[in-house]
Design a protein around this nucleic acid. Structure first.
Length: 705
RNA sequence: GGGCGCGUAGUUCAGCGGUUAGAAUGUCCGCCUUACACGCGGAAGGUCCCUGGUUCGAAUCCAGGCGCGCCCACCA
């Protein structure tokens, strides 16, 4: 190469790739091209490829889970786009019922008011104000990851069109008789003042006490003695010989008189109680006999249903003892009542012993308050037929779950699912479309419709929901795949599948990919509240988006959780820079009048390294298609660094023939394309510097296999 | 109580029946060699969790155990 030529490029292209200079500029170039929208893609594209983002909550903040999930999704989408598919990746956000309402309620509390003072209408105005101002923040953060999503189709789960979809779905179920109103023991969050689903209760092991209380001639072990006031039976196992003779009999036992005020000494009172036999009782636990409190325990509620027992509600929606608990306890919080009743029982010698005890306490997924099971009138959706549909979808391979080991839990869950409590006592959400109803629907009821509603289902009228049009649903449904963390497999994927099956007769996607969970270096959960989280935006600032993406992808085996350490990003950054310099070398090496070609390798390139790369391209394609991201990333890394750079470039240094030039050019262009899904920014930046006549953005160049 | 995943160099992970077990990162020693010091060359570093079994041969398959993590469940 000529000295002058070398000098020219040496000054044009810096020795080090600096992501910060390139990323925003390149992302703008992509946006300006319009290529994220399928209808703007160049060339003839017969096959479609469609996927939806897992909509983050409007209250959300970008975390490593997003970074991993969206990187992997973008890798697939970018490859498909380069392969010539009409790709659509649809973004949006979820209104996040409880979470979002909590945020605004906290604001109100600071202002010394609350939603009830404000009234429903004003409160909802505040909600919308908040969402207009802050609800898009998470999407702005997502852009930093370089995602090739179609922002012109951004959706929100409370868009007008979406509201229509929810209404249509509800009424459809209602008319089928699958939606009913009933009083059941449900999980009630005292702080959020709403029902929450079984899946939104976290059971945390906590230290407590196990109280052994005398019931006539028996002793019963309980962790919640205050619920004694709502007992309507005792239960034993049907095969327990010790108690067989008492089954079906009513016992007279001594209890505490709850109509005496708490200021006065405790006094005894005789009460009658029935003994029933039920399979669910564990003979081995405690004394083998349990007290049944149908109103405040889910198991006890079910026992009461089987045996036709009465239910006495003694705890109210604020977590305080109500009038049924008697004047002695009324108004006390459950914890206070527990202390009081133990004191009382001890006074009249009804406490046999108290043991230290570890047990599981249900806490609200959103606010961590203790969950109080209590009877409440709620709306339910019958799950029998829908569960069948979801099972059938998997069994008939209409939808495939990756990795396949998740099929087990999926089926198990559906085989044991109870009717879905779909009502929430919130204001922020989809109002139940029945005259006179104040409640809203569980957020997941609308999430369940995501792939349908975002594409414009149910085709009511055009333009009713932002840009979603009739054509989108017809053209792009069903989608090709969906991906998420395993934690929402039951909350979300299952429900999207049965919704799709019920409303369209098709699974809303062909593949569900359950990706790994990002853990800390020592295998702990990443959590903001524990301070174990890592902020992806800071990492991007420090290492660049490509480094983050490549680092994550290189560890995404799909089978194993990902222990995240910054050394991954060091590797990614170095690799991006390495490739930058490979390109720099090639640009300097090739003669000024060299003609770059983009289409395919010249016929005469038969060298070993060229065929190796062609073989690699086939494997990379296969890897990405099968969600083997780590394999793809690592084999690319190996080839680029140790074959291309270490061997071929070193050997090329004292060669100046046409074949060497062609080979260098071919290797560079092909590697750029293969690397693009993983490291879109640095590759696009290099691409822009390669003098290829008539080239388009690398984003839409043809995939090399 | 059921179920699942994982235990391999200091660290994060590949390898999943066959020559001296690999990569990245970290460490140490040389090199600013005209693409790259985010680099190049070299080195050290491993009872492949334990115990049995199958096999000519096991990190790899099987059984049991130990440890870590996760999911489901009506432990009162």
């Amino acid at each position: 190469m000529s000295k002058e030529y070398a000098d020219k490029f040496a000054t044009d292209i810096p020795k080090t790739y600096t992501p910060r200079d390139a990323e925003d500029r390149i992302y703008s170039a992509w946006l300006n091209s319009g290529f994220f929208a399928p209808e703007n893609l160049p060339g003839e594209r017969k096959e479609k490829f469609v996927t939806c983002i897992a909509p983050p909550n409007i209250t959300g903040e970008l975390h490593m889970g997003h970074a991993l999930e969206l990187t992997l999704q973008d890798i697939i989408v970018r490859m498909k786009r380069m392969q010539g598919h009409r790709t659509l990746w649809l973004p949006g956000t979820d209104h996040a019922g409880i979470a979002a309402q909590n945020v605004v309620e906290k604001q109100l509390a600071k202002e010394g008011t609350n939603r009830h003072e404000l009234g429903r209408e004003k409160f909802l105005e505040r909600m919308w104000q908040w969402r207009d101002q802050y609800g898009g923040a998470i999407l702005e953060q997502l852009k930093k990851l370089g995602l090739s999503v179609d922002w012109t189709r951004t959706k929100f789960t409370m868009d007008p069109g979406y509201q229509e979809a929810v209404k249509t779905a509800f009424l459809h179920y209602y008319q089928k008789g699958w939606i009913y109103k009933g009083t059941r023991v449900i999980n009630w969050c005292i702080r959020c003042a709403t029902a929450v689903s079984d899946l939104e209760v976290n059971y945390v092991t906590e230290k407590g006490k196990l109280y052994f209380i005398k019931y006539g001639q028996f002793t019963i072990a309980t962790a919640r003695p205050e619920t004694k006031l709502g007992d309507t039976a005792l239960a034993v196992h049907p095969e327990d010989q010790r108690y067989k003779e008492y089954v079906g009999k009513e016992l007279e036992i001594e209890s505490v008189n709850n109509s005496v005020s708490a200021e006065q000494p405790a006094e005894p009172k005789k009460v009658k109680i029935l003994v029933v036999a039920d399979e669910t009782v564990d003979k081995e636990f405690g004394t083998g006999i349990i007290k049944v409190t149908p109103a405040h325990d889910l198991t006890d509620f079910e026992i009461s249903q089987r045996h036709n027992l009465a239910s006495i509600k003694i705890i109210d929606e604020r977590g305080r003892m109500n009038e049924n608990a008697g004047i002695r306890y009324q108004g006390m919080k459950t914890a206070e009542a527990r202390e009081q009743i133990i004191k009382d029982l001890e006074a009249i010698d009804l406490v046999e012993k108290i043991e230290e005890y570890e047990h599981n306490v249900g806490r609200c997924d959103r606010c961590n308050s203790v969950i109080e099971p209590l009877p409440s009138e709620q709306w339910f959706l019958k799950m029998r037929e829908l569960a069948k549909l979801a099972l059938e979808a998997v069994e008939s391979s209409r939808v495939k779950i990756h990795p396949p080991r998740w099929e087990g839990p999926y089926k198990h869950w559906l085989n044991n699912v109870r009717d879905w409590n779909i009502s929430r006592q919130l204001w922020w959400g989809h109002k139940i479309p029945i005259e006179g109803e104040n409640d809203v629907l569980d957020t997941w009821f609308s999430s369940a419709l995501w792939p349908l509603a975002t594409l414009g289902w149910p085709l009511l009228r055009q333009g009713s929901g932002g840009q979603a049009s009739k054509n989108d649903f017809e053209e792009y449904y069903p989608t090709d795949f969906i991906t998420s963390d395993r934690s929402i497999l039951f909350l979300w994927q299952v429900r999207m599948i049965f919704s799709g099956m019920e409303f369209t007769g098709q699974s809303p996607f062909k593949d569900v990919y359950v990706h790994a969970t990002v853990l800390t270096k020592d295998g702990k959960r990443m959590s903001k509240s524990l301070g174990t989280g890592v902020n992806p935006l800071e990492l991007i600032e420090k290492y660049g988006t490509d480094a983050l993406r490549f680092g994550l992808a290189s560890q995404a085996t799909g089978l194993q959780d990902l222990r995240f350490g910054e050394d991954l990003l060091v590797m990614g950054r170095k690799f991006a820079n390495k490739f930058w310099n490979i390109a720099r070398y090639v640009l300097i090496k090739l003669p000024e009048d060299y003609t770059w070609k983009i289409k395919k390798s010249p016929q005469d390139l038969q060298s070993e390294i060229v065929s190796k790369l062609d073989g690699l391209a086939v494997n990379i394609t296969k890897n990405i298609t099968q969600y083997e991201f780590a394999e793809a990333a690592n084999s690319l890394y190996k080839f680029v660094w140790h074959e291309f750079a270490d061997k071929y470039i070193e050997e090329s240094k004292d060669k100046n023939d046409q074949e060497t030039y062609d080979t260098l050019a071919y290797l560079t262009v092909t590697c750029l394309k293969l690397l693009h899904p993983f490291m879109p920014f640095v590759t696009e930046e290099i691409w822009s510097k390669i003098p290829i006549p008539g080239k388009n953005l690398l984003l839409v160049e043809n995939w090399p296999s």
